[in-house]
Amino acid sequence: MNTIRSILAVSALLVILFTFILISFNPGYGLFSFGHPEEKSWRIALYKYYIENGANLSGGANIVTDIVFDLRGYDTLGEATVLFTAIAGALALLRRGGAK
């Protein structure tokens, strides 16, 4: 990369970083404050549902496990598929020989 592009790259990074800092510090900007027990008024407190009913729905004491294996089990299936894809891909790339 040449000099101009490096300067542009650094300024682009700074813009992004500045925006991120802005959104995590400025309350007026639509902040999610760290660890605040009260929700923003418009935020859906979906997690309260999981905490209250997760165990009843899938019967596990660990709610994260309940979510991973039951409530969002489809994502876990997708994750397993990604793993399968990666292994199939790696095997295809590291296979011996190949034509020609």
Partner: peptide, 24 residues
């Protein structure tokens, strides 16, 4: 949205592997 991301990764990883399929 997160499910979209998971499927996006399935699509992407398999297409990376397929692009480089003729590894010789």
């Amino acid at each position: 949205l997160f499910n979209l991301y998971v499927f996006l990764e399935i699509t992407s990883i398999s297409s990376y592997a397929l692009v480089a399929f003729r590894k010789h």
